[in-house]
Design a protein around this nucleic acid. Structure first.
Length: 105
DNA sequence: GCTATGACCTAAT
DNA sequence: AATTAGGCCATAG
C-alpha cells in the first residue's frame, strides 16, 4: 500500500472535523480511534492551529476541560464557542457524561 | 539516528 | 486534594 508516513495527523484532523456541533471528544478517545497516543493528538492540533478547518474547541481532556495551553482566545473564547454550539460549560468544564461524542457504535 | 519536547493519561505518593 | 513520576508516540533539531 502506498501509505504516507505522516498519515497520523491527517487521521486526527479528519476525526476532529467529524465531530458534530454540540459534542465534545477527549484526546484519549481520538487517540484510540487513530491508534496512537493522546500526546500525538494534542501535538497534531497544536501543530495546525487552524480553527477555520479544525474545531479544536471541541477537543477536551479526560476531565472535560480544555488544555490550559489553548493559544487562541483563551478559556473565555473557547467557552463562548462551546456554548454557541449548545454545550454548557460549567467551571471551565463540560459534562463528558453528556457531551462526550462516541465514534464507535 | 539520537535527543528533546509536547494542546495528554494514569497511577502512586 | 495537590504534586511527582512514568508511559506513550510523533515531530523537529
Amino acid at each position: 500500500m502506498t501509505s504516507s508516513p505522516s498519515n497520523t495527523y491527517e487521521k486526527i484532523y479528519q476525526l476532529v472535523q467529524c465531530i458534530p456541533a454540540g459534542s465534545v471528544a477527549t484526546y484519549g478517545d481520538v487517540a484510540h480511534e487513530v491508534d496512537t497516543s493522546p500526546r500525538v493528538v494534542g501535538n497534531a492540533l497544536h501543530a495546525n492551529p487552524d480553527e477555520s478547518t479544525i474545531p479544536c474547541h471541541r477537543i477536551v481532556n479526560h476531565r472535560g476541560a480544555l488544555a490550559p495551553h489553548f493559544a487562541f482566545g483563551g478559556f473565555p473564547e473557547q467557552q463562548r464557542r462551546l456554548e454557541s454550539e449548545g454545550v454548557a460549560v460549567m467551571a471551565s468544564r463540560v459534562d463528558l457524561t453528556k457531551y462526550r461524542h462516541r465514534f464507535h457504535k
